[in-house]
Computed example of a mutant assay.
Amino acid sequence: MTTSEQKSRTVLSLGSNLGDRLDNLQEGIDALFDAPGLDFIAISPVYETKPVGGPEQDDFLNVVIVADSSVAPQSLLERVLNIEESMDRVRDVHWGPRTLDIDIVTVNDVTSDAPELVLPHPRAHERAFVLVPWADVDPDALLPGRGRVADLLPAVAGQELRRRDDLSLQPPA
């Protein structure tokens, strides 16, 4: 848990595969930083990815955000869930299509096995759409309990992922 004076390096992964995917990501980013407690550090390039698991569905646009947070992880989770709900996120089908998905990947070296918030994210090390953009913005990043993100990349090299340099997102105002 953090106090208002402490900042925790926080990594968030955002994805969208319904509606205007790029606009959904931008709205999610803006909403994350509208409330106090998150200080923007970096945003990755946009990637287009095939869905992992779940039913057949459209491709995702994905980005990774790095921020310094003075918000407790549980409070950050509440913020994330409220943003997803405000953007009509539907949770009817496990790993189904979504307007916006925001995952808390890491909060410093905090570990948690709480059912509502497992930290670090339990599948981050298996997902190219998390690791590749994260490595773009923080080449020396560490995934607690798994090691250097750069060292995890070969294990996900076979996953379909395409950098979309024709698309970009704006840092929060």
Score class of each variant (00 low, 15 high):
F33K: 13
V71C: 06
R91T: 09
V105H: 05
E116A: 13
P55L: 13
M87D: 06
V71E: 02
V118Y: 06
I41D: 15
R89N: 01
L119C: 01
V110S: 11
P144C: 10
S44G: 01
A173H: 05
E126Y: 02
L77S: 03
E27P: 00
A72I: 07
V63P: 01
E48I: 04
R21P: 04
R127G: 13
A155V: 15
S8Y: 10
D30G: 04
T106R: 13
S75W: 06
M1L: 05
A157D: 08
M87R: 14
L167T: 11
V64C: 04
Q159T: 01
S16T: 00
W95G: 12
V66F: 10
Q6P: 07
Y47W: 07
I43K: 11
V64A: 03
A173R: 01
H121L: 03
P172D: 14
L167N: 06
S4A: 14
S44T: 02
P122H: 03
D165P: 09
R123N: 15
V105R: 11
L152I: 10
S4L: 11
D165I: 02
D59W: 09
F33V: 02
L142T: 14
V149I: 04
P51D: 09
V93H: 10
W134H: 13
L14C: 05
D88H: 14
E78F: 14
A135H: 09
P36A: 14
A67G: 08
A72Y: 09
N108A: 14
I29N: 05
N24H: 12
L167H: 04
A72W: 04
V137A: 02
G53L: 12
L100G: 14
S75Y: 12
Q57G: 15
Q170S: 06
S4C: 15
T3Q: 10
Q26I: 03
V105K: 04
D39L: 13
S4M: 10
F60L: 03
L152F: 02
N17Q: 04
D166K: 08
L119G: 00
I41N: 08
T3I: 02
P172H: 11
A31E: 03
V64G: 04
T99I: 12
L18R: 06
L117K: 00
P133S: 05
S4P: 15
A155T: 12
L32V: 10
A31M: 09
D20M: 11
A173G: 10
H121S: 03
N62L: 00
S70K: 02
G158K: 13
M1D: 01
V11R: 09
P36H: 10
F40V: 07
S44A: 05
V110A: 15
Q26T: 05
L117R: 00
D136V: 11
